[in-house]
């Protein structure tokens, strides 16, 4: 078993060196994990207006049977669908 105390001591000491010369540690291969950027614009702005669809139907049109089946890009997901969620 690795000595946790030694690991911690080395790590915290290295951390404190950072402040001194703006030191950065060299990246190793394991640093190459993927990074995904998201262009989130906070688009669900609160609105004071009404939807133009507000009055367009007498029923809200949610009862059509064809809607009950997912029909998007999920059709391109294959295998393992019965695996339990995390």
């Amino acid at each position: 078993m690795t000595n946790t105390k030694t690991l911690v001591s080395t790590a915290v000491s290295s951390l404190m060196l950072l402040g001194i010369a703006g030191t950065t540690l060299p990246a190793n291969a394991a640093d190459m994990e993927k990074c995904f950027g998201v262009a989130k614009a906070g688009k669900n702005d609160c609105q004071t207006s009404n939807s133009s669809c507000a009055g367009t139907s007498t029923k809200d049109g949610q009862k059509d049977a064809w809607l009950f089946v997912p029909k998007g890009t999920c059709e391109k997901l294959v295998g393992g669908t019965t695996k339990a969620g995390a």
Binding site: Q47, T48, S49, N50, S51, S52, A54, G55
Partner: peptide, 8 residues
């Protein structure tokens, strides 16, 4: 008909 305040 009815007017709806859509701000659009």
């Amino acid at each position: 008909s009815i007017l709806i305040d859509t701000h659009d």
